[in-house]
Amino acid sequence: MAEPFIRIESIVKQYVRDTQVLTVLDGLSLSVEEGDFVALMGPSGSGKTTLLNLIAGIDKPTSGRIAVGKSEVSSMSEAALARYRSENIGFIFQLYNLVPVLTAFENVELPLLLTKMSRAQRRKQVELALSIVGLADRMDHYPRQLSGGQEQRVAIARAIATDPKVLVADEPTGDLDAKSGEEILILLERLNDEFKKTIVMVTHDPRAASRAHRLVHLDKGVLKEDIRAEGREVGLEAARSAVVS
């Protein structure tokens, strides 16, 4: 059997706040197969966002090992981490975090500026990404001219523009109404299905979690429950029970 794509081994993450040591992740281990769609759930302070940030390479563990594909994320320098993020990770935020002074096109183009692509190649890539999220006709709009759902779709286009292997999403539907949220989930499923993106998503929302193939439940920095879907999705039932327990 091949090695799993994302390998997290005995990870510990501690913060020092006013001389008090706060343990957010406490020796957690987890593997994620390539092409999987994982929902991270758990109450506030359970460490799910921290885990997401560690996978994305925007935070460093206190100890333990994180590897994604061939990248030894936990032992990388600042500069290597930046390159790792740019090449391997697409990040989707709860509050979209588009740059307000840039148009949809320019926002999506932003990560491509870090590649060696020519202007024309970038243009093609941006157009492709925007058409995947269904916003090819909104290229020249500024974020404030878009609805929340549209903004999140632009943000997803930005995340996939460089064609990364992994998408990490932090409450991608947390700030959206049910309809827009549903659209985003459909889009994520499609990215997982059709484009074979490995997705790790933090969420509170059982409906969002129910679409994942695997549900990882954290509590107080340790793995509490790990449910694999029997069919294609974990389903609402399992997701609900994870929230309640």
Binding site: A56, I58, E78, A79, A82, R83, Y84, R85, S86, E87, I89, F91, F93, N97, V99, L110, P111, L114, R158
Partner: peptide, 14 residues
């Protein structure tokens, strides 16, 4: 502050 953190997340170096 947030915007700059986003740029860093996208992979822009310091």
């Amino acid at each position: 502050v947030t915007e700059i953190a986003v740029l860093r997340t996208l992979g822009f170096p310091k």
